[in-house]
């Protein structure tokens, strides 16, 4: 692959991240009740307030002093301390929620990408066929439903009703001490929310892949492949699929970038201790440092996955490389 292409894309990503950091700084300082809130505590004397301001560096001008300090601490990985989780560094609070979210949404994405793309490709290739009528119908239904709408009936039937799975959370407190038991416990908690998120994502991927394949089918090189006497399966695998995949790359990358944001409604419905639940908690508590940390993490993740998309795109499409 072209080195100049890589370097250019990498530079673009770094500039974007820098812009995001500055934007976050401006955004959170422009919001009502921002950092200054502490120093306006009416129970404090003006002298105490001034001392407090000086302690947090709020007596200095916004630009450049505060901005420089903000960038400096952000770059060194200091995102401040959470208000809701008193005294705990934001990085720790966020870090604890990242794992559960990646486990749930990341795994869901992985399954949905494989199943969704295959389902969409088959549906589009044999438009009106059995796979298309069943698969595309189901995909439309699941795609149009928010995750919690898929999740709630699952809870009612398989958790509250049949009692096969726990209704909420990721672990049963004090359930098991041995590692195998713990893994099984988490797996049991994972089944229902994972099913919900995977079904929704399969719907999205298969619908997009279906239309990409239908578009590709009409291309002249597919007629050439048919004229070559290749089997239908080979034409799909070697000619239609690799081309139809190209428009999917960006979409997949954007989706993966947002994995870290969690599936908010789904996590709340299942009380899953991930970033989605944490975001809601931070919003309710007006925990600005925590929100700021979450936003920064999500934005950086989106940018990095877009960068990855550019690389993957370059690998899949020779036209991009030159």
């Amino acid at each position: 692959m072209n080195v100049a292409y890589l370097v250019r894309k990498l530079a673009q990503a770094l500039v974007t991240i820098a812009a995001i950091v500055i934007l976050l700084f401006v955004l959170f300082r422009a919001m009502p009740g921002s950092p200054d809130r502490v120093s306006k505590n009416p129970n404090m004397t003006p002298a105490m307030q001034a001392a407090e301001r000086a302690r947090w560096g709020l007596d200095k001008p916004l630009v450049p002093d505060q901005l420089v300090a903000f960038i400096g601490s952000t770059v060194t990985g200091d995102l401040g301390t959470s208000i809701k989780f008193r005294g705990q560094p934001v990085t720790e609070v966020v870090g604890a929620a990242v794992g559960p979210t990646i486990l749930l949404v990341g795994l869901g994405e992985a399954i949905a990408i494989i199943v969704g793309l295959a389902l969409g490709a088959l549906s589009g290739w044999r438009r009106g066929g059995l796979v298309d009528r069943l698969g595309n119908g189901a995909s439309l239904v699941f795609y149009s439903m928010p995750y919690f709408v898929i999740g709630m009936p699952l809870i009612m039937v398989f958790a509250s009703g049949l009692g096969w799975f726990p209704t909420s959370g990721m672990t049963t407190p004090g359930a098991s001490a041995d590692p195998v038991g713990q893994v099984l416990d988490v797996a049991g908690h994972l089944v229902l929310p994972l099913t919900a998120v995977t079904l929704g994502l399969i719907g999205a991927y298969s619908i997009l892949m279906r239309s990409a394949i239908i578009e590709t089918r009409a291309e002249d090189y597919i007629t050439t492949a048919r004229a070559k006497g290749l089997t239908d399966a080979r034409i799909l695998r070697h000619h239609a699929f690799p081309n139809a995949l190209l428009p999917m790359v960006t979409f997949i990358a954007i989706n993966l970038g947002y994995v870290i944001a969690g599936a908010i409604t789904l996590e709340v419905v299942f009380s899953w201790p991930g970033l989605g639940t944490l975001t809601v908690a931070a919003l309710n508590a007006r925990d600005y440092p925590l929100l700021q940390g979450i936003f920064l993490l999500v934005s950086v993740s989106v940018v990095m996955f877009n960068l990855l998309a550019d690389f993957v795109y370059g690998a899949l499409d020779p036209r991009v490389r030159s």
Partner: peptide, 30 residues
């Protein structure tokens, strides 16, 4: 009979050739 007996050259080979496959591979395929 396709290609082995009756083969075709289409107009504007830009679209008639698969854009993401090397031409050598496309010729070798049949």
């Amino acid at each position: 009979y396709r290609w082995r007996e009756i083969s075709m050259v289409f107009q504007g080979a830009m679209n008639a050739l698969n854009p993401v496959q090397r031409v050598g591979d496309q010729i070798a395929e049949p």
